[in-house]
Computed example of a mutant assay.
Amino acid sequence: MTPVRTVSTADLSGPERSAVRGLLDLAFGGAFTAEDWDHALGGLHFLVLGGGGEPIAHASVVPRRFLLDDRPLRCGYVEAVAVHPAHRRQGLGGAVMAPAERAIDHGYDLGALSASEDGHGLYLSRGWRLWDGPTAVLAPSGVTLTPEDDDSTFVRGITATGTLVCDWRAGDVW
């Protein structure tokens, strides 16, 4: 079993935070934005460290507020799942997801994440399901449907259906 370090954002040192950000920049090919980084902060980080102590796999779970129709829900939202390119296809994505899922299952009403098409297989194999209703965001102007996110939003811990509404934030809302 691969050892995974769990640490809150508040307990990451400056150099550790920089190393995680460097991993994310590398893993996402330079497409990991400042807003994406901001979304990954404020919760728990799950890290696999290489032989030199550098992060080679990462996932974070941050708290968010969702609505299912009109019912408020505490959501553990998964962000910044990444594996160093030289360490892919070794089970490290699953290694960081296992404790992330445990944190969600025992601390939140539901888990949610937005996945690229390449990531669908990982999440489906771990018991996540593609949300089968409409998605929306509680924007400053009110609830706004986000149909562009309907095919990439995954959930766990909830079987109900309806319109799933996420809280507003800068950048990608899902």
Rank of each mutant, 00 (worst) to 15 (best):
G142M: 02
F154H: 12
V155Y: 06
A100G: 11
R64S: 12
Y123V: 00
A40G: 15
E79A: 12
A19T: 03
A19L: 03
F46H: 12
L44F: 11
I56D: 15
S114K: 08
D69F: 10
G22F: 06
E16G: 00
V173E: 00
D150G: 06
T163I: 13
A27K: 05
D109H: 11
V137G: 00
V155M: 08
L23K: 12
V61S: 06
M1W: 06
G127A: 02
W128H: 00
R71V: 15
G53E: 13
F32T: 05
V48Q: 09
T146P: 01
L49F: 13
T9N: 01
T144D: 08
D36R: 10
T161N: 13
D25Q: 14
A139E: 02
R65S: 15
A170K: 14
G157Q: 03
T135R: 07
G50M: 08
G51F: 09
W168M: 09
G107E: 06
A57I: 10
G171V: 02
S152R: 15
A136E: 00
R64Y: 11
A19V: 02
P85S: 06
S116P: 01
L164W: 09
I158H: 04
F32A: 04
V155W: 05
A139N: 02
G94C: 09
E54P: 08
C75F: 07
L24N: 08
W174T: 07
L12P: 01
P55H: 14
L12Y: 06
Y77M: 15
L41V: 08
E54F: 12
R126H: 03
P147L: 11
V143Y: 02
H87A: 15
R156S: 00
G127V: 03
G93D: 01
A139M: 02
G142N: 03
A98N: 07
G107I: 11
T33K: 12
G42V: 07
A86H: 14
H87Q: 14
T135M: 09
T6W: 07
V20R: 04
G30T: 10
G14K: 01
V4I: 12
E16W: 01
D172E: 05
A100F: 07
G94Q: 14
E54S: 15
D25H: 14
L26I: 07
G111L: 04
H87N: 11
V61R: 06
V143Q: 05
A112G: 13
W131Q: 05
S18M: 03
S125R: 14
T163V: 15
